[in-house]
Structure formats: structure tokens, C-alpha cells
Design a protein around this nucleic acid. Structure first.
Lengths: 226, 226
DNA sequence: TAGGATATTGAACATGCGTTCAGTCGATCC
DNA sequence: GGATCGACTGAACGCATGTTCAATATCCTA
């Protein structure tokens, strides 16, 4: 496995990837940097040092290239799934997406998560399913509170975190935290995000009285056996 | 004020908006429906029943049109600010964005919130500032817990909610809740979102012991006067 | 080594985009 | 009535896009 973003690799080691892999990895970086709409076949070709025709030859179309990138990113995340599951709940819920293999992984996700794409939909579904498992492990180990709705909770927590990633520009501007930066965990400013997030995750936002009132308004007594 | 989305207005009442306003409102609906990249001047012109040249005549460029739409949406939200501030904290944090004026408002935001646009940045900054105020009111009224970092908390809560809106497709697929639907509050499935959200906001996710441990790992004793 | 298969190229194509522009029309003013 | 202005049109323009394609290069196998 390469330890830096392929596009930023300046080492003299020969590139042992196939042209196809090189193109695909360059495309991931381009999509991450320019966004989906502004990434053209010519930009990808230039980044991979091939011709536009070669890009189309390998992937059939830009659409095919996008699909291949989605699938590659999903595979990279899947490869780290065991690691996430074995490390249990973390304060930084996006940690497992800061892959050492693709420095652009988080930035790529930030660009594609809101796209209407079956591959991305599957990726998110898998991430939520994984979250449900490791949140369950957290309950078993006494770190997390039990819930009547493990799946709903996992979906909410995962989509909040992923949504924050998609809105990384605003997070950066407001709290000085760049969630697409693979090394954000080493940035002291990261605490600006972690502290309030952990506060909400730790004690909630509502007072006990208001929380009880809110819960009752959603599930009035006598209707608890739905 | 019109009470339905302009594009969906089938009443025979004469349209008293200027052509400029009609075009702008049609554009908001187009951006909401097709996204920013796939909304062309010809689509907007067709929706507004004018020529493409007329669109450009009024707004100078597609970029000018986008800016006008951002500003109009921001104004519509600003108009509802007093209402949000006077109603205090709500279980549904996106309620103030379900404008009766624009059925497409939430869907428009879902499309543009991740765009790199100064107008959108300002809009989000304003929303966070508003959130800080009404969360503060919630603390004063005893509904919400006090915090050492009102601004950080407001940013997190707002960006989580807005992020969930941006990822509305996944939310819909996973929990059957369409957050861009202006009438989602009347949909029984909305509880699928509210229950886990209120649970996390109510009691948090972490157990008391883990929350204390987590807080201490972020702010070790002896370093509390930062 | 020859031949077939595959990879790659750079030019060209077809299409659609945002924008420009000359002309028309209606309203207003002198 | 004529001049001016603003609104609007539809055709055309200049440009960029994704894709196609014929020619060439490279690789692999018998």
C-alpha cells in the first residue's frame, strides 16, 4: 500500500500501478479537489499524464470513471472496517475515513456524499451498518447508552458526522477545523470541534426535564407498545 | 406573500411578480430540483416561460442569477428569523427553513449548502449566530444545558442539522424521511428521525462515566484555565 | 521474429453551454 | 409624431465538453 496520496508522491520509486489504476487514483484526487462537476476528462488525463482518449478507453466514459472511483473508495474503506470495528467507539467519528492510503479520501467523500449515485448510497448504507455494530459494542462495553432503536441512532450519528464533513468549508470558517485534512487529528484546532461534539454526545443538549418532556411528546404514555 | 411554491401554483390568479422575480423564483426551483451544475439557462428560461437571452438580460450571467437566488433565499430566511427566535428551541431544528413562501427552500439549501459561495457562507454564518441566540434563550428558560462554549455548540448543532439536510437522500432511504419535503413535519415517518435525534440531544450518546472520561481526555485537570 | 491483441495518441466530431446581438415591440416623454 | 428607453426575442457565436476514430506503439505468445 502506498503511504501518501498518489498525486503528491514525489519519491523516485517507480510507479508500479497499472495505467488504469493511475488514472483512477488521479481522478479521485481531481474529484476531491475540483468537485464532480468541474472535473473534466482533460483534467484527469493531465493529472495522470495520459491522453483524454486513454481515460475513455479504460473506463468507457466519465460516468464509468466516476463509478470506478466510488467503488475504489468503498473498497478502501471496507479494508479499514476491521480496524474501526476493533477500535470501538471514538470521539472522532470520522477517524476511520482518514485513510492513509488516500490523503484525498475525506475530501473525495465531501464532494460525492450528496451526489445521487447508487455506489455512494451503498457506501453510506454500509457505513451506517458498521456504525450500528460498533455502537452496539460500545453499549456492551458500558461506554455508550443502550437504545430502543440502534439502527435509527446509528443512522443519525453517522449522517450528522458525514454531513459535517460535506459542510467542511463552513466548519473551517466557523471553528478553524478542516475536516477534509487527513492530519486534522494532529491539529490543535481540532479540539474546537471535538469539545462541543463530545459535550453534546456526552450529556446531551436538553436538560433532563426538557428531555423527558420531549420524549413524552413523541411517545405519549399508552402508546409505548407501538 | 405567496403561499405555495411559485412553480407549482396552478391558481388562475394573475402573476403580479416582475419578470425578474419570476425568473429568479423559477431558478430557485430549478436549482432545487436539478442541482446547481445541471441547471442551465435554457432550463430556467423554459420554467419561467422567457427566452434564455431574457434571463441573461436581467441577471447578467448565470453566476449573477445564482447570486440573486442565494440573496433571495437568505432574505426569506431572515424574514422568518424573528419567528424562530420567538418560538425558542424546537425538536426539529430545521423547522425555520421550511418556509411557506418557497416550498423549494429546503431542497434549494440541500443543493447549495456545500457550494463554495460567499453568499451561502454568510447565510450559514447568520444561521449559526441565530442558533447561538436561541440556544442561549433555551438555557435561560431552563430547557437547555448551559455550556462553556455557546458558539462552538451552536456551530456543531447547526452544521449537523444542515448536513443531514444535504444528505437528505440517504436519510430518506435509511429512515424513510425526506427532509426537503416542506410538509415533512406532518409525515408520521418524521418520528423515525426525531426519536433518535431527540434521544441523542436528550441524554447524549455516552454513559456518564465515559462522558467524564472523554471530557477529561480533552481537558486534563490543571489545564482548565486555557 | 511475426502476428495478433491491447494500449495509447492526437485530431476531429457532435453536442450543448453561456453569452452576444440585431431587430422588434411597447411604453413614455417631449 | 418622433425619439428614446427598456424588455424581450431567436439566431448565431465562441468555447468547452465527452466521445469517437484512424494511426501508431507496445506487449505478449506461439
Amino acid at each position: 500500500m502506498r503511504s501518501v496520496d498518489p498525486l503528491e508522491d514525489t519519491s523516485p520509486a517507480p510507479d508500479d500501478r497499472t495505467t488504469r489504476a493511475r488514472i483512477r487514483d488521479s481522478a479521485i484526487s481531481c474529484f476531491a479537489k475540483h468537485g464532480v462537476a468541474d472535473t473534466t476528462v482533460r483534467k484527469v488525463a493531465a493529472a495522470a499524464d495520459v491522453s483524454p482518449g486513454s481515460v475513455i478507453h479504460h473506463f468507457g466514459s466519465m460516468e464509468g470513471l466516476r463509478l470506478a472511483c466510488d467503488q475504489q473508495v468503498a473498497a478502501a474503506i471496507r479494508d479499514r472496517k476491521g480496524e474501526a470495528l476493533s477500535s470501538g467507539p471514538q470521539l472522532d467519528m470520522l477517524a476511520s475515513l482518514r485513510s492513509a492510503e488516500y490523503g484525498s479520501l475525506a475530501a473525495y467523500l465531501a464532494q460525492v456524499l450528496a451526489e445521487d449515485s447508487p455506489a455512494v448510497a451503498k457506501l453510506v448504507d454500509d457505513l451506517v451498518a458498521d456504525a450500528e455494530v460498533y455502537l452496539g459494542q460500545g453499549v456492551d462495553s458500558g461506554m455508550l447508552r443502550p437504545t430502543d432503536d440502534p439502527r435509527g441512532r446509528a443512522a443519525i450519528v453517522a449522517l450528522w458526522s458525514l454531513g459535517a464533513l460535506v459542510l467542511h468549508r463552513h466548519m473551517d470558517r466557523l471553528l478553524g477545523v478542516d475536516l477534509t485534512n487527513p492530519d486534522v487529528a494532529a491539529d490543535p484546532a481540532f479540539l474546537n470541534y471535538l469539545r462541543p461534539a463530545v459535550e453534546v454526545m456526552g450529556t446531551g443538549l436538553f436538560t433532563d426535564a426538557f428531555a423527558a418532556q420531549a420524549k413524552e411528546s413523541l411517545d405519549p404514555p399508552g402508546e409505548t407498545d407501538q
